[in-house]
């Protein structure tokens, strides 16, 4: 069996300190295999987003270790962390976080701009990513002028433009109606199957969770149970 892409050991996260401290994660162990799709499910406030932020290297754990591709991430410098997030991860959030005034193309190519890719290449890759999501005719529009479903597709285009290894999605369909949500889900699972991109999806939605290879149920900062899809 191939070594896991991400390996988590005894993960703790405490917010604040002193009497007001709140322990959001209370010791988690987890391996994510290459190409796996993982759902993180749980009640509100159970620590799903906290776990995802730690896995995505957006935050440092209070204790415990996260190993990415065999590297202990606590040893990475700020610069290396930035480079890893920029090159290996894609993000999809419940809110779209699009720059409303900028064009769809500019929004999609933002990760490439941050990576320092020249403009010409950015445009070519941006148009290709938009074409993949059937949005190439909207490239010049202002992001604000799109529908909710179109916006979430722009966000997905932005998440996959740097050919990431993992897409982290926090409630990707939370803001969408059922039909549009289903389309977005299809796109994400299609990426997972065809391009082998790992998915880490935080959701309340049991049905979305059941489409993932594995579902992790979190309760009060601990893994309550894990379900592997049949």
């Amino acid at each position: 069996m191939a070594p896991p892409l991400i390996s988590v050991h005894d993960l703790h996260k405490t917010y604040g300190s002193g009497p007001g401290a709140f322990e959001a994660l209370k010791g988690l162990d987890l391996d994510i295999a290459q190409g796996e799709s993982l759902a993180i499910v749980g009640k509100s406030g159970s620590g799903k987003s906290t776990l995802m932020h730690l896995l995505a290297l957006l935050d440092r754990p209070t204790s415990g270790s996260i190993t990415l591709d065999g590297t202990d991430t606590s040893r990475l410098s700020a610069k290396q962390l930035n480079r890893t997030r920029n090159g290996a991860f894609g993000f999809v959030f419940q809110q779209f976080f699009l720059n409303a005034q900028a064009s769809v193309l500019d929004n999609v190519t933002l990760p490439l701009k941050i990576a320092g890719v020249p403009r010409r290449e950015r445009t070519a890759r941006g148009l290709a990513a938009l074409a993949q999501l059937e949005l190439d005719d909207k490239a010049g529009n202002r992001a604000n002028d799109l529908s909710g479903g179109q916006k979430q597709r722009v966000v997905i285009a932005r998440a996959l433009i740097n050919r990431p290894r993992v897409i982290f999605a926090d409630e990707p369909t939370g803001n969408l109606d059922t039909a549009t949500g289903a389309v977005v889900e299809d796109i994400l699972f299609d990426l997972n199957e065809r391009q082998g991109i790992n998915l880490v999806v935080v959701t309340h939605d049991e049905e979305l969770a059941s489409r993932c290879d594995r579902s992790l149920y979190i309760r009060d900062g601990r893994i309550a149970r894990a379900e592997v899809a049949a």
Binding site: N82, R83, R85, F91, F97, L110, I114, A115
Partner: peptide
């Protein structure tokens, strides 16, 4: 605020 947060999440350094 959100835009800056997003760009930092996407790997933009504080210096930039």
């Amino acid at each position: 605020t959100r835009e800056v947060g997003l760009m930092k999440a996407m790997g933009l350094s504080s210096a930039r």
